[in-house]
């Protein structure tokens, strides 16, 4: 079943075309990777899907419904969750309160919302740090908090923007099972990632973006063997490992 459908999506910033007539779809239950060189427009695609930016052209369908013009909070309520590349925990709030911010959207009762938030923190392995100040957490844990917050919106589709970037190899190998667990609960995952080995081990399909255009699509193996991809992206800077 198609969960997300993107139809000829474009975004222009003045004279610059960040995303150009991109077409793709994501099926329920998939883990799809989105790769591309720096400045390829990956985060812009996420911003368009999550509603922080309005597309210049094209339509976005979610669960068969046209959601192109909706505002970010409306898309979140429909079931599109996202993380940000640069982790931005809410300051002045504890780890638990950070996760309560999204659970309080669907559950106005603070008691219930607190229970929900604790549950999410348990799932990502941060339950020992409920009362901690997020600024004091190590970077890998702040990344997890970012994922926890997005999960707490109870998404059907989760957009992960480089959640593995900046982690060491041990931290990456700890984070990968988390991504699988999220999928096992029925959450479809669309993730931007630079670490190819990690991406290849988790994703069913990979989309490749270059200068705003979709240049390849397929299994991780197909994509890495695609000459156009090698030329555009992997050829100049292969990051295997």
């Amino acid at each position: 079943m198609r969960l997300l459908q993107v139809d000829r999506l474009s975004k222009h910033f003045g004279g610059v075309t960040a995303v150009n007539e991109v077409i793709f779809e994501i099926r329920q239950g998939e883990i799809v990777g989105l790769i591309g060189p720096n400045g390829a427009g990956k985060t812009t695609v996420f911003n368009l899907i999550s509603g922080l930016l309005h597309p210049s052209q094209g339509r976005i369908y979610f669960g068969g419904k046209d959601i192109t013009g909706l505002r970010p909070h409306q898309k979140s309520l429909l079931g599109i969750g996202r993380t940000f590349q640069i982790v931005r925990p809410f300051d002045g709030m504890t780890v638990l309160e950070n996760v309560m911010v999204p659970t309080l959207v669907r559950h106005r009762n603070p008691q219930k919302a607190r229970e929900m938030a604790r549950g999410v923190l348990r799932d990502v392995g941060l339950d020992a740090f409920c009362e901690a100040n997020p600024q004091n957490l190590p970077y890998a844990y702040r990344k997890r908090l970012e994922v926890a917050r997005a999960l707490a919106t109870e998404p059907k589709l989760l957009l992960l923007d480089e959640v593995l970037a900046g982690l060491n190899s041990r931290e990456v190998s700890e984070a990968l099972p988390l991504i699988h667990r999220i999928r096992e609960r029925g959450v479809t995952i669309f993730m931007i990632e630079h670490i190819m080995t990690a991406l290849m081990s988790v994703s069913d399909r990979v989309l490749v973006l270059e200068q705003g255009e979709l240049i390849a699509e397929g299994t991780p193996k197909e994509v890495t063997e695609n000459p156009r991809v090698i030329k555009a992206y992997l050829g100049e800077n292969v990051s295997i490992g």
Partner: peptide
């Protein structure tokens, strides 16, 4: 909670459904 979240980061707050 939502007001405090907005004070800290309005875009993140929107993306979380506020």
């Amino acid at each position: 909670h939502h007001l405090r979240a907005i004070a800290s980061d309005e875009e993140a707050a929107q993306a979380l459904g506020i």
